[in-house]
């Protein structure tokens, strides 16, 4: 019994090492930026970082489901954008916004926008699980479809008005805390609870860990993957609506950066692209690494044209560390 439990403890330690590596990266980045810039390690800047990563956090929560299934969703940014534009399309716009839109009551506009993201997710799910298109290709097509829907609805214009509820949640505050940060935390929390404590969450890990074995255990693998893709799309829809309020406008290509940021947040946090390993705690660390990196580089005095390159190199370094940490496994 003692040998079994000590072997368990050892494999637990090695198992958590791959979760520790991203955490070490995060602490290292914070220390470096705090050392290099006095304005970085302040309470108000912490608030900035939280606000800056909120939209990414909502997108990455949904994407975590997909990546844990060993699939990918490249349409996250496009679905967020299309949903945000759809919300504006169903809201009464000022006279100078020259689009032929369909204003609805605010609550209905929100439902219509969410329905848009849901349907796009369903199309992804049908393409991947029923027709059998690899998710990489299917969601690549959806990336274009999402962009296309957005373009058709907004016609090159910029729309400003969104329903009041969304305006509050996207740009308002509650007791000094931005609503968008609260929502992001809630989405992360719910995702974590679903992944860790529900049957569906267990199936997600099992399907990602060994799809064939899940199938031979009587798990409806296609249904699980479909659900993951739809969850991802709806999270993107929520992020897209709040994002429009957060940015103060709805327009084309508004969310383009969130494709890479969303994937990077999940993967840098240590969730395996091959599925079955990782989770929301990893995604949170990945979000913080990304947020600290994006924010910190603005606080130190370097050539702004160099920043993108530095960001890329630091992300690469983080990924390399993760890959080595993930190779460490308990001895068989």
């Amino acid at each position: 019994m003692t040998t079994a439990s000590s072997a368990g403890a050892k494999s637990w330690m090695i198992g958590s090492l791959r979760n520790v590596a991203p955490l070490v990266t995060l602490i290292f980045l914070i220390a470096v930026f705090a050392f290099m810039s006095p304005s970085f390690a302040t309470m108000s800047n912490f608030g900035n970082i939280m606000r800056q990563i909120s939209i990414t956090a909502i997108i990455a929560s949904g994407l975590t489901f997909v990546i844990l299934c060993a699939e990918i969703d490249l349409s996250i940014a496009a679905i967020a954008n299309a949903t945000g534009i759809a919300l504006a399309f169903f809201t009464l716009q000022p006279d100078y916004v020259n689009i032929d839109n369909v204003p609805l009551w605010g609550g209905l506009a929100i439902v219509m926008a969410l329905l848009t993201s849901f349907l796009l997710g369903v199309v992804n799910a049908i393409g991947v699980t029923r027709i059998g298109i690899p998710s990489f290709i299917m969601t690549l097509a959806m990336m274009q479809i999402g962009a296309g829907i957005g373009a058709l609805l907004i016609r090159g214009q910029i729309a400003y008005a969104v329903p009041d509820l969304i305006k509050t949640l996207g740009s308002g505050q509650i007791m000094g805390v931005p609503w968008i940060v609260v929502i992001a935390c809630l989405v992360l929390l719910i995702s974590h609870l679903v992944l860790t404590y529900t049957r569906f969450g267990r199936y997600i890990y099992m399907v990602g860990g060994n799809r064939e074995a899940a199938e031979y255990s009587g798990v409806d693998v296609k249904l699980v993957i479909s659900a993951a893709l739809v969850i991802s799309a709806v999270c993107c829809g929520l992020a897209g609506m709040l994002g429009v309020a957060y940015f103060g406008s709805a327009q084309q290509n508004e969310f383009d950066d969130y494709l890479l940021d969303g994937i990077a947040a999940v993967v840098v946090g240590g969730t395996s692209l091959f599925g079955g390993r990782g989770g929301i705690p990893n995604t949170i660390i990945g979000l913080l690494v990304l947020g600290v990196l994006n924010n910190g580089l603005d606080h130190i005095d370097i050539d702004s044209f160099l920043k993108v390159l530095i960001r890329g190199l630091i992300l690469l370094a983080a990924l390399i560390i993760n890959v080595y940490a993930q190779r460490l496994r308990a001895p068989d």
Binding site: M206, G209, N210, E212, A213, Y216, S217, G276
Partner: peptide, 13 residues
């Protein structure tokens, strides 16, 4: 129960 253990079990779990 299939013939190959690999297609039945989850090694990481």
């Amino acid at each position: 129960v299939p013939e190959s253990r690999r297609s039945m079990l989850f090694g990481e779990q």
